[in-house]
């Protein structure tokens, strides 16, 4: 059964890794719903957050195929319940939409959105939240005329207690053992 999964991938900062990751999805004819990358809490280690809708068997295989690439430190997949996540959306609406009564203002209050900038011709509104929430505000604002709209990729943190630093330590230990073993074999 298809379900939404969020992959969290920790990588080194190397040219071409994004390509190595995306071809794995392309091969399986999987569409990436959203993708975000930024430096993690550890300097030099990058965090990719990728959202994809597929079966658990598929996401499991894909995660393993990603993790085995050189330059990938660790890859996980999570269901919605296992993460805390957020997205950000920006809406550019004509300033005149605010001229008719307080409809738009109450919308902004209701959705806990905020106004980033006010220009004579347009206003830019920002809303953070899950896709359903930002999409709902989109629908509400649509009748006032949306000039531009953009939504970011999902960013997510996991609820699990074990942090990446502990995995990295384990990885280092495994490498050390593997290295020692190569030496003994030789």
């Amino acid at each position: 059964m298809k379900k939404e999964y969020t992959l969290t991938i920790f990588t080194e900062n190397k040219i071409g890794l994004l390509h190595r990751i995306t071809v794995i999805f392309t091969r399986r004819h999987l569409n990436i719903d959203s993708l975000n990358t930024s430096e993690s809490e550890i300097r030099g280690i990058y965090r990719f957050t990728i959202v994809v809708s597929t079966t658990e068997t598929m996401v499991q295989t894909v995660t393993k195929q990603i993790e085995k690439q050189i330059g990938i430190l660790k890859a996980f997949y999570h269901t919605e319940e296992e993460i805390v996540y957020q997205e950000i959306a920006l809406y550019k609406v004509p300033t005149k939409a605010f001229a008719h009564g307080d409809d738009v203002e109450s919308l902004i209050r209701k959705f806990n959105a905020r106004v980033l900038t006010i220009e004579p011709e347009y206003i830019v509104v920002e809303k953070t939240g899950h896709k359903t929430e930002t999409q709902q505000l989109f629908r509400e604002l649509e009748s006032y005329g949306i000039l531009q709209f953009a939504r970011s990729g999902r960013i997510a943190l996991t609820k699990q207690i074990r942090e990446i630093t502990s995995y990295l330590k384990e990885l280092e230990q495994q490498q050390k053992e593997s290295e020692e073993e190569v030496l003994t074999y030789n």
């Binding site: 990588t11 080194e12 050189i70 330059g71 990885l171 593997s178 290295e179 190569v182």
Partner: peptide
């Protein structure tokens, strides 16, 4: 070399 960060050739 027999060490490349992020790469574990022989899993334990």
């Amino acid at each position: 070399t027999n060490r490349v960060s992020s790469y574990v050739p022989k899993p334990k």
